[in-house]
Write a protein that binds this DNA or RNA. Structure first.
Lengths: 241, 241
DNA sequence: TCAATAGTGTCTTTTAGACAATATTGC
DNA sequence: GCAATATTGTCTAAAAGACACTATTGA
């Protein structure tokens, strides 16, 4: 085994360590991902995930939150409240043609509303549909695919879906989040029964019911509960064969 | 956003990138983890996870497989067949007191039998019970805890448990793997019904049945099936409250 | 009135959990 | 025979799925 004691940090060409952010939202019944347009080679003009270098004195998680605030134009306080989760690390030697870059990818889920009005560099950040997205720089298409897999799986046994919803939301909105992420239709009464029967998933919020589109009965409002995981899970409908 | 184009790799003190391996096995009904004893400061004399530096031209995954082969004394071919999975990356600035080290942790599951007879550096590698383990160097206790959480969760909806079993195993052995990892007792008839009803989880193997301890009816042998995930999942018994 | 969405109730099928009963081995 | 483990079977409880039905809004 190698040991760090025997290692001279300057003996090798150094590794660069970056974070990449796969920031998702649901708008108009479609999953969107936050992308920026690259101005320089390689991949000049291509779309890419936001991200940046981990600074010498910060953790990857801190770097991810810092970049997230910068890219979305949110305050640090708001960004701190967003759901941010480490996805995995990508370290193929040639994933960046210029130098050795190891990137820690993070997934963030944000409610549908806020535009990525960027302070600073984020002016070119834009929501793009996660399906039918353009060609992406580096291995970013892979990162997005991995992130979508992870999100879809976590929807089954965690309360993660509420991270896509505003503070107060209707069960119809929550159901649409599930349907969008999973790409399936769910039965409304059964979904409702299941969600309400899961302790800590959602809790009712008092006040005037909200109308969804103007038409139809106004729906009751709920907010995210205190639970983090679902017991029992909310399983994706299976493709029986 | 920072961009690698504007980055001088030698401007900062470089990052070192390592892999840490949390290698587990089940023996005698207890979960064990492969540890090495450190010979040098910091943490001289303490136990630590095996691992090492990612070389300039290899991916973290390749480094993990290389280190795994070295530490366990297995051939590259055997090591390639073991279950190896990226856990997460640890990047706190002071996790190593000497320098900035970002470590990509991997989890490996191996069948109970093989001793870590090490070629080379691995002579000091040893299986230790995962509970009641000694104090560990760096943040390795945290890594082991994260790995155990992940394994326990994945047991619910994947076929991962068979990775702890030899090529041919009995349902009783598989059940004991579940019971060890989850720390619960399972009902044998129900476990059996569930496993056999899940397509692709296990498949029967012909040949003489094996006796477990000499006493009792010999059990039929099975091998791992072709499925990777369980549908529907095999849920951990819930602590109802 | 109708269209549209929210919400309730009910029935059936599936799955999980508890546990009795039988089978096959070593001693 | 008995102890120990494997295996089958049965009954019950819980959950999922399908779907009819009612409720409340805007036009």
């Amino acid at each position: 085994m190698n040991d760090a004691t025997t290692y001279d940090p300057h003996a090798f060409e150094p590794f660069a360590v970056t974070v990449d952010l796969a920031v998702f939202t649901v708008r108009e019944g479609r999953l969107h991902v936050l992308l920026i347009r690259r101005g320089q080679d390689p991949y000049a003009g291509a779309w890419a995930l936001p991200g940046g270098f981990v600074l010498p004195r910060e953790s990857a998680e801190s770097a991810a939150r810092r970049e997230l605030a910068e890219e979305t134009g949110l305050s640090r306080e708001s960004a701190a409240a967003l759901h941010l989760e480490q996805l995995r690390t990508y370290s193929e030697p040639d994933r960046d043609p210029r130098m050795r870059v190891v990137s820690v990818a993070y997934t963030a889920l944000v409610p549908g509303l806020p535009e990525p009005r960027g302070g600073g560099d984020a002016a070119h950040a834009q929501w793009m549909p996660a399906d039918g997205a353009p060609a992406l720089a580096f291995d970013h298409a892979r990162i997005i695919a991995d992130a979508r897999d992870r999100i879809g799986a976590k929807f089954e046994y965690t309360c993660l879906a509420t991270a896509f919803c505003p503070r107060a939301f209707t069960l119809g909105e929550l159901q649409q989040v599930y349907e969008t992420v999973w790409g399936v239709e769910l039965d409304r009464p059964n979904f409702r029964r299941k969600v309400l029967a899961t302790p800590g998933f959602v809790e009712p919020v008092e006040g005037a019911p909200r109308r969804t589109g103007g038409r139809g009965k106004p729906a009751a409002l709920y907010r995210a509960g205190t639970a983090a995981t679902l017991h029992p899970p909310l399983l994706r409908p299976q493709r029986r064969f």
